[in-house]
Design a protein around this nucleic acid. Structure first.
Lengths: 211, 211
DNA sequence: GCATTCACTGTATATATTTACAGTGAACCT
DNA sequence: AGGTTCACTGTAAATATATACAGTGAATGC
């Protein structure tokens, strides 16, 4: 649970981050004060203590420029072009796909490889998409969106179950098609059953080939 | 031409880099002196001036910890684990797979995702490996090695043609098997034909899914 | 044999930096 | 109306830090 920052604290944090980018080291209290127009270095000190208390920075006592950003800071900063994608394994029933408990790892794969840009990788279970070249254990790159068009490969949630299928819609009747003759299509009537599109499959990574 | 550093200067540079990694900011002269056992802060100062002069760091006068690494520093530091893999498209006849002319791009994919570690990505052409979930246009992560065992997916070169197939060997008779009944196995007699194993397929990346 | 470079010691000092303490005023909650 | 939080002012002082100047000794190049 990342505690929320005040708007002012966000500005301070942003400046610290920028200063590190530009100079290679964090600012002093005086430099912070100069930038924000504080007449007292204590204004900066107080902000730093607050940011430290909220866990987004870490202060080292007695050392000049003893400020470092913690991983928590990332959540409050205009995010730098991400180089990692979270890997989601089995999705616990009822939890959001990207809930902490579902995230197994972060893989260093450039999201720019895929279009549209994926938000996470989902480990595929089962062979229902075999003929689309998506096999058991493959990682599906998923772009989060609730919209899907006919023929797209979607990550869908039906009654708390998350599944990967090809999408087809006809009015309030939706078909989720497997790409494997051994699996029957799933038919959903939107008037009677809940169906949520979690996202679109935009790519596949297979990180082991069996002999 | 990056000027060469003395061994001692390399040590200093390495320590500065490590300090930044660990603390988020560069060391002071005193901290450098403490680490290296200097009894005078001027020993550190001199080293910093030298490193500045050689362009691997940049000093900001009058500011505590006013040290930043320049791009030149990278050449003198133990290189950070590579994050990119070259993408090889169509391989020109007779040229090494990784020849400049065959490399189309460098993709930011962590090689550590795959085992053993791949050396490049090869764009697969054709559907001969369809039933192994390797489709036309897929990128095959390839680990360079001339050794292959039965059942492994290999990148092979026969008479200047590069192809991806499943490997099977029986004495001096090698079979290269497609994973698609529409394609006949390729039979090679090592006594009469040249066969080179370029590498092993260790993973697949599909960066577009068609609707 | 002498100049040069490298890697330091030793001392000193101005100044950069952190950090404590004592307040103020506005906004918000109840 | 009173308490709390937020965002500051203002002052002071200890101490952390950069940096100048004057040396030493060993190794290297010519």
């Amino acid at each position: 649970m990342s505690k929320t920052l005040t708007p002012r604290q966000r500005e301070i944090l942003k400046f610290i981050s920028q200063h590190i980018d530009q100079h290679g080291f964090p600012p002093t209290r005086a430099e912070l004060s100069k930038h924000f127009g504080f007449r007292s270095p204590n204004a900066a000190e107080s902000h730093l203590r607050a940011l430290d208390g909220k866990g987004v920075i870490q202060l080292e006592r007695g050392r000049s420029r003893g400020i470092s950003l913690t991983p928590l800071a990332g959540a409050h900063l205009p995010e730098p072009p991400r180089m990692e994608l979270p890997l989601v394994g089995r999705v616990a029933a009822g939890s959001p796909v990207l809930a902490q408990e579902n995230v197994e790892d972060a893989l260093r794969v450039d999201p720019a490889l895929f279009r549209p840009r994926p938000h996470y990788l989902l480990r595929v279970e089962g062979m229902s998409m075999r003929d689309a070249g998506i096999l058991d254990g493959d990682l599906l790159a998923v772009h989060r969106t609730p919209e899907a068009r006919d023929g797209q490969i979607v990550v869908a949630r039906i009654e708390d179950e998350v599944t990967v299928k090809r999408f087809r819609r006809d009015g309030h009747r939706v078909q989720l098609l497997a790409e494997n003759p051994d699996f029957a299509p799933i038919e959903v009537d939107l008037r009677h059953q809940a169906l949520a599109i979690e996202g679109l499959g935009v790519g596949v990574i297979r990180h082991r080939l069996d002999a």
